[in-house]
Amino acid sequence: MTIDMNTLDKAILNRIQTRFPLTSRPFATIADELGSTEKEVLTRVSRLKDAGIIRRIGGNFVPGKVGFVSTLCAAQVPEEKLDLFARTVNTFPGVTHNYLRENAFNVWFTFISPSMTIIRDNLAAIAEKTGVRRILNLPATHVFKIKAKFDL
């Protein structure tokens, strides 16, 4: 779905990327800041999400600080299985996102879990459900957080 974004859409996207309001009605707070209404902001956020411009709105946590582990995974997925593989991976709790790369290992995704054992078990289940056997598990040894903010 392609949509035209106006000034308010861009202002909303700029605003929700950092310092998301921790209030009982965060979209009302954002609306007040932008001179709009809560209903209008919610409608626009929903439309931007439906169009795939917004993937998710949520907190980012350092896994180790909350007792979790994280890993980066790379899979060698035949083109005819790309859709099945992505859909399957996305059903597992702890998968934050996945993306295509131009490489023999063409699907990459991150996995966060209470233990590496759970991640290994989930990777085995993904392999079983999709028939994709070449999945690398690349656990994080050092975490580097890069703030990605897109100024619209």
Rank of each mutant, 00 (worst) to 15 (best):
R55D: 09
F92W: 07
S113Y: 05
I3W: 01
D9H: 10
A11F: 06
D50Y: 06
G59M: 14
T91Q: 12
A31C: 06
F27C: 07
M5L: 13
A11R: 13
F85G: 00
I146Y: 13
R101T: 10
N103V: 03
F109W: 05
L82M: 07
I118A: 11
M116N: 03
L100R: 05
H97K: 09
V41K: 04
S115F: 01
F150T: 14
R134C: 05
E80N: 15
W108I: 10
V77K: 00
V95C: 07
R44K: 12
E79H: 11
V62G: 08
K129M: 13
S113Q: 00
L48M: 15
G94R: 02
V143I: 15
F61Q: 11
L8R: 08
L84W: 06
N137C: 03
V89E: 01
A148I: 13
V95S: 07
D151E: 15
D83P: 02
F144K: 10
N98Q: 13
R25H: 12
L82V: 03
P139S: 05
E38L: 03
T96C: 08
L152F: 15
N98G: 10
V69G: 00
L100H: 05
T88N: 01
L152I: 13
F27V: 01
K147L: 12
N6I: 05
M5Q: 03
E128Q: 14
N106T: 00
K81I: 01
K39R: 15
S36W: 01
D83H: 13
K149R: 12
P114S: 02
M1S: 12
T71Y: 02
N6C: 04
T43Q: 14
D151G: 04
R87A: 08
L123N: 00
I146W: 10
I135K: 02
I135P: 00
T37A: 06
T110A: 00
F20A: 11
S115I: 02
T91L: 08
D4S: 11
I119Q: 08
K147V: 10
T96K: 02
P139A: 03
P139R: 00
K10N: 11
K65V: 12
N103T: 06
N14H: 06
D32M: 12
N60H: 15
E79F: 13
A86N: 07
I54Q: 08
P114H: 02
A127W: 05
